[in-house]
Design a protein around this nucleic acid. Structure first.
Lengths: 190, 190
DNA sequence: TAGATTGTTAATCGATTAACAATC
DNA sequence: TAGATTGTTAATCGATTAACAATC
């Protein structure tokens, strides 16, 4: 909307783009503050900035990536991560053949240097793309080293050992199962 | 559990692995039927099979992948998809340099052959990994060609044109924002 | 019989929706 | 002033939890 020169936007239009009702948009925003003007709507730039502050994307975050299998290598080159508020500052693997090489412009570090580099660079977030068997162990190390947020792609439900780190789980194979369920259910209910 | 030889499992243990209470596990399962035995628990193999049937993963699904950018190429080689109930039967891109080549053992088709191949092979599911600008247009074509489920990785909220296809959205950049929010919020509330 | 655990009811909690006064 | 749209209240709806009878 900013790009197309819109100055204000209302809850109905926001809802259309988000798949929500206008009431839901207003209610949800009102939880964080008053960002609109009655009779007018929400200022596009003001609301954008307010949402950035709410999400924490008004500041810059340093991110490391652990695990360079098929998925990890892809995430490494994915611009959706590197752009905006997130900066990839290190990638790790325990395969000696990969350590020292460069993947998508990133020098690959050994997993044994994990703690050292996290502390040197004061890294805050980690993307975890190791096999399920190794995920919990690596997560524990990340947390001990001072990481405060883990985006977990391993197909396992991570527990936060110390509660010092937030965990967000993404399981792509599970999403495909969700889709299969949605299809089966749609045909069943019609 | 099956691998480790367990014959039965109870709702408390299932809940531990899922991050749910025992009551929630029982309640959720009971919506689909009665799978357990009072005083004993749930039979591991029986429950596994029942869940497969509920999810629709007891049958085999043919899947195509559209879009071979960074993310698409990764998804192409991701074993989490190809294994089990999902079979990748075609990958598509509109870049003439990519068409005809082979990526992760998959021959790359032209986007112009989309409808032809969907119909020839009676493909049911599609993974969409094209840029946001192209996503809705490709989704409309997929739906018209008879696809009944779309797993969308483009950072846009897809509308189903005809309501004939189920859509599941996965936005990985958004998950990273979710993580940043969780971190900011955790520190705020402590 | 005693212990364990499901399936389900009733109570609680939280989220969504409808509606409208406030106000631009 | 008339029309538009927010922010919020009250009503509704749905999901979670606690508890326990049923039963292995």
């Amino acid at each position: 909307m900013s790009r197309s020169g819109k100055r204000t936007v209302n809850s109905r239009i926001l809802g259309q783009h988000l798949g929500l009702t206008d009431a839901q948009v207003r209610r949800d925003l009102s939880i964080f503050g008053q960002f609109g003007q009655r009779g007018v709507g929400y200022p596009v730039s003001g609301l954008t900035q307010a949402i950035r502050e709410i999400l924490g994307t008004d500041r810059s975050w340093d991110v490391i990536l652990v695990g360079l299998g098929n998925l990890g290598r892809a995430l490494c080159g994915y611009r959706g991560f590197s752009q905006q508020s997130f900066r990839l500052v290190g990638v790790f693997d325990n395969d000696p053949k990969k350590v020292g090489t460069t993947i998508s412009g990133q020098k690959v570090f050994s997993l044994s240097d994990l703690e050292k580099i996290i502390q040197e660079k004061s890294v805050q977030l980690a993307i975890l793309a190791v096999p399920a068997e190794a995920a919990q162990e690596v997560a524990d190390r990340l947390e001990k080293a001072g990481i405060c947020g883990i985006l977990n792609f391993a197909p396992i439900n991570l527990r936060s050992a110390t509660q010092n780190a937030a965990v967000v789980n993404v399981d792509m194979a599970l999403e495909l199962q969700r889709l299969a369920f949605a299809v089966v259910n749609a045909t069943t209910n019609s």
